[in-house]
Simulated scan of single mutants.
Amino acid sequence: MRIILSRVKSITYLAVMQRVEIMKRLKTVFFAFIFTFLNFSTLLAEDPPEIDDPLLPPREELPIDNQIVFLVVLAVVLGIAVIYRNRIKKASM
C-alpha cells in the first residue's frame, strides 16, 4: 500500500511540475507577443498633422530623441545585470 501511495504522490508531483513548466513557457510567449505587438503598433503609427497656427509654439524635438542611443545601451546593460543576478541566485539554491 505504501509503494502505491508513494508512486501516486510522485506521479502527482511530476504532473504539477510539468504544468508549472508549461505555464512558465506560456507566460514568456504571452509577454513576448504583447511587447512585440506594442512595438509594431508604435512603429506603424502616423505622425500627427502639421498645424500652421501662428499662436502655437513651434514643435521641437523631444529631449529623449537626442539621447536614445544612451538609453538603449543602458537598458541592455541593466537587462544583462538582472539576468546575471537571477542565474547566480538560482545556482546558489
Rank of each mutant, 00 (worst) to 15 (best):
V76G: 07
V16Q: 09
I88R: 10
E46L: 13
R85K: 14
V8Q: 05
A91I: 07
E61I: 15
R25W: 02
F33I: 00
M17D: 02
I51D: 04
S41V: 15
R7V: 06
F37H: 06
A32K: 14
I4H: 13
A32F: 04
R59I: 15
L38C: 06
P57I: 00
E21D: 04
V29H: 10
L62D: 12
S10W: 05
L78D: 10
T36D: 07
S10Q: 10
V69I: 14
E60C: 03
A32M: 11
E50D: 08
L55F: 09
F33K: 00
Q18H: 08
P54V: 01
K9A: 07
R2G: 13
I34H: 00
V77A: 12
T28W: 03
V82A: 02
K27I: 01
K90C: 02
F35P: 01
I11K: 11
D65C: 11
I83E: 11
R85F: 09
D47N: 11
F40Q: 12
F31D: 08
A81Y: 02
F30W: 09
G79N: 14
F30Y: 12
V20S: 07
T12Q: 14
T42K: 10
V69G: 11
T42V: 15
M93E: 06
I88K: 14
L5Q: 13
D52L: 07
D52W: 05
F31G: 06
M23H: 05
K27M: 05
Y13N: 13
L43S: 03
R59Q: 13
R7G: 02
L78H: 09
A81S: 04
E50W: 05
R7L: 06
Y84H: 13
R85G: 10
R85E: 12
I80F: 00
S6D: 12
F70K: 13
I80T: 03
Y13K: 14
I80M: 00
V16K: 11
P57R: 04
A45H: 09
F70T: 12
T28G: 06
M23C: 01
N66M: 12
F37Q: 00
L14W: 12
L71I: 03
L56Q: 04
K9P: 00
F70Y: 14
D53Q: 02
M93G: 09
I68M: 07
I34A: 02
